[in-house]
Amino acid sequence: MNMTKVRILAHSLQLFNTYGIGAVSQRKIADTLAISPGNLTYHFKKKEDIEIALYEQLVDKVSVVIEGALDKRFELSSMFEMTKGILSLFFEYRFIFLDFVQLMRGNQKIATHYSALMKQRKEQFFYAIHQLENNGLIREEELPDEYEFLYDRFQILSDFWIASAEFSTGNVTAKNLKRYTQVILQSIYPYLTTRGKTEFLNCLKS
């Protein structure tokens, strides 16, 4: 990717995070970069193309974090590290989650990809759950579809914690990030074995 595209994406990310995608026009992006609108459209014909490029950046970075965690023996410490890494990236690209509904309704390419991506993420979640179960850290299901619902909670909390923080505190900060990381991680605590709970508490201290 050439440097002009890199600069466009970096400045667009900052503008989208600050003002929201609805309030940022191609003209505003061009003015911020001190380039002509024609130069901008040469690299990205529509604002939606910038949105797609930033979305793809996030997906690629999150995939690296997840695959790195799953490529080795998966312990609760792996889940802590992975969750912190993912939520930090979500914070970096927070406009996607603050404008989630608008983005999905207005950008069909992102919506289609996101739908397929969630199927992959669900498979990765259950791979991690089975690893924890095999390692004696998480108990077997006691209710029908118990871990299906746990996945749903993880997904909802992960995708919408930023919107919750924005509307409850008026601003999304690193302090919010730390709090909601714990909100999400502690969702798994009731499902842990005695050994798993001990390891979980040790992870909290580290």
Results as ranks from 00 to 15, higher is better:
Lys5Gly: 08
Lys5Glu: 12
Val6Thr: 13
Ile8Val: 04
Ile8Tyr: 03
Ile8Met: 02
Ala10Phe: 06
Ala10Asn: 13
Ala10Gln: 14
His11Tyr: 07
Gln14Arg: 09
Gln14Phe: 04
Leu15Met: 03
Leu15Lys: 01
Leu15Gly: 04
Leu15Glu: 02
Phe16Glu: 01
Phe16Leu: 01
Thr18Glu: 12
Thr18Pro: 05
Thr18Arg: 10
Tyr19Leu: 08
Gly20Met: 06
Gly20Arg: 04
Gly20Phe: 04
Ala23Cys: 05
Ala23Ser: 05
Val24Met: 00
Val24Lys: 00
Ser25Leu: 00
Ser25Arg: 04
Gln26Phe: 06
Gln26Asn: 12
Gln26Met: 15
Arg27Tyr: 08
Arg27Phe: 09
Lys28Val: 08
Ile29Val: 08
Ile29Asn: 01
Ala30Met: 06
Ala30Phe: 07
Asp31Met: 10
Asp31His: 12
Thr32Leu: 03
Leu33Phe: 05
Leu33Thr: 07
Leu33Glu: 06
Leu33Asp: 08
Ile35Cys: 05
Ile35Asn: 01
Ile35Arg: 03
Ser36Leu: 05
Ser36Val: 02
Pro37Ala: 02
Pro37Leu: 02
Pro37His: 00
Gly38Ser: 09
Gly38Phe: 02
Gly38Glu: 05
Asn39Glu: 11
Leu40Val: 09
Thr41Val: 10
Thr41Ile: 08
Tyr42Ala: 06
Tyr42Leu: 11
Tyr42Asn: 07
Tyr42Thr: 12
His43Gly: 09
His43Lys: 08
His43Pro: 09
His43Val: 08
Phe44Gly: 05
Phe44Glu: 01
Phe44Arg: 01
Phe44Thr: 01
Phe44Tyr: 12
Phe44Trp: 06
Phe44His: 04
Lys45Gln: 11
Lys45Ala: 14
Lys45Arg: 14
Lys47Cys: 00
Lys47Arg: 02
Glu48Asn: 13
Glu48Cys: 10
Asp49Gly: 04
Asp49Ser: 06
Asp49Phe: 09
Ile50Arg: 01
Glu51Pro: 03
Glu51Val: 10
Ile52Thr: 10
Ile52Cys: 08
Ala53Pro: 02
Leu54Gly: 07
Leu54Tyr: 07
Tyr55Ala: 04
Tyr55Met: 02
Tyr55Ser: 04
Glu56Met: 11
Glu56Tyr: 09
Gln57Arg: 09
Gln57Val: 01
Gln57Phe: 07
Gln57Ala: 01
Leu58Trp: 10
Leu58Ser: 13
Val59His: 10
Val59Asn: 07
Asp60Leu: 10
Asp60Asn: 14
Lys61Asp: 14
Lys61Phe: 12
Ser63Met: 10
Ser63Asn: 15
Ser63Val: 12
Val64Ser: 14
Val64Asp: 15
Val64Ile: 15
Val64Gln: 15
Val65Gly: 05
Val65Leu: 06
Val65Met: 01
Val65Asp: 01
Val65Ser: 03
Ile66Arg: 11
Ile66Asp: 07
Ile66Leu: 11
Ile66Asn: 06
Glu67Ser: 09
Glu67Met: 13
Glu67Phe: 10
Gly68Ile: 11
Gly68Ser: 11
Gly68Tyr: 13
Ala69Glu: 15
Ala69Ser: 15
Ala69Lys: 09
Leu70Tyr: 06
Leu70Phe: 12
Asp71Arg: 13
Asp71Val: 09
Asp71Pro: 04
Arg73Phe: 13
Arg73Ala: 15
Phe74Asn: 02
Phe74Arg: 05
Glu75Cys: 11
Leu76Lys: 11
Leu76Asn: 11
Leu76Trp: 12
Ser77Lys: 14
Ser77Asp: 13
Ser77Arg: 13
Ser78Gln: 07
Glu81Thr: 15
Glu81Gly: 13
Glu81His: 15
